Simulated assay, not measured.
Amino acid sequence: MELRHLRYFVTLAEELHFGRAAERLHIAQPPLSQQIRQLETELGFSLFYRTKRTVRLTDAGQIFLLESQRILSQLRHAIALGQQVSRGEIGQLTIGFVSSAAYNVLPPILQAFRAQVPGVTLALHELTTAQQPQWLQEGRIDIGLFRPPVESNGCQVETIFQESLTLALPETHPLTQQKKVSVRSLIGEPFIVFPRAVAPGLYDPIISLCQQAGFSPIVAQEAIQMQTIVSLVAAEMGVAIVPASLQQLQRPGVTYRPLAEVTPQVAIALIWRQQDRSSTVQRFVEVVRQIAQQWIA
């Protein structure tokens, strides 16, 4: 039995007229009659009572019609689901992100993706930059938002956002009285920084900025989360040079001040497996590219 036999049968059962059914199916009437007889022979029971003037379903035919309609409906549903998956419109996407992305790119990306592709379920994991390539290789995430550069063999990387650096100070610090703070003013200050092994894309520009001002910063404490760094600043453990978007993290005890010097730009990039042909991943990349035009123009 083939699916076309079910379609022929359902159409005839709906029309109860061989001529009209054949017309709907775009075939001649004799082949339709032949296909129905073949189906009845294969099933071992009659589907229709036939006279010269009428065609009507047998009791067995009525039951078979209900089940056949259900099968064809399930088939249409399966085809529709397959098409949606192939277009990246349904499924699940697991995203890794560095904590700082939550203060700039992550919210608008998630908002845009959910608006355009509501059928995809998103699972989020807060990860360091160093963790993301490994999680990608292990298949634990599908795509990541990280601070480049990072060792990314077998991965595709695309920068989507760049920003300058700013200064986070304890609110009692004398430098909060200045509208802009020169980097040289930070000589001798204890610094709170990211470990280089975790985020070289942040660590190196900060150290370079200080060295250009003629000193190497005194690292008093390292932390891998933006929230922790700001909390340590609030606790007067030191100062921190951070991405400018972190100013959205308003915490009691912390004051942000722009730096007088032009600072290096620090980036956020997408990372995904180079050989990943997932339509959902590609759809996510497309959405991010659309909204990233305003950030990297």
Rank of each mutant, 00 (worst) to 15 (best):
L3D: 13
R7A: 13
V10K: 10
T11Q: 10
E14T: 15
L16A: 11
H17P: 05
G19P: 02
A22R: 01
L25N: 09
H26R: 14
I27Q: 01
P30V: 07
Q34M: 14
I36V: 13
R37F: 08
L39W: 00
L39C: 11
E42Q: 14
F45V: 13
F45D: 06
F45I: 14
R56S: 15
T58M: 14
A60C: 00
L65C: 15
Q69K: 14
I71R: 15
S73Y: 12
S73V: 05
S73I: 00
Q74P: 01
Q74Y: 15
R76A: 15
H77Q: 11
I79R: 13
G82E: 10
E89K: 03
N104L: 06
P107G: 09
P107S: 08
A112W: 01
Q116R: 01
Q116A: 01
L127S: 04
L127F: 13
Q131L: 07
Q132T: 01
G139K: 03
D142T: 06
I143K: 00
F146P: 00
P148Y: 12
V150M: 04
G154H: 08
E158I: 00
I160Y: 03
S164L: 05
L165I: 07
T166P: 02
L169N: 08
L175T: 02
T176L: 09
Q178G: 10
S182G: 12
S185I: 13
S185R: 14
L186P: 02
I192F: 15
V193K: 05
V198E: 03
I206S: 06
S208A: 15
S208C: 09
Q211P: 11
Q212W: 05
Q212E: 11
Q212C: 14
S216L: 09
S216T: 14
I218G: 10
I218N: 11
V219Q: 02
A223R: 09
V230C: 04
M237C: 05
A240D: 09
I241Y: 06
I241P: 00
V242H: 04
L246Y: 09
Q247Y: 02
R251K: 15
P252R: 09
P252Q: 13
G253L: 02
V254D: 04
P258T: 01
P258K: 02
E261P: 03
E261Q: 10
A269C: 08
I271P: 03
R273T: 12
R273D: 10
D276P: 05
Q282S: 04
V288L: 02
I296V: 15
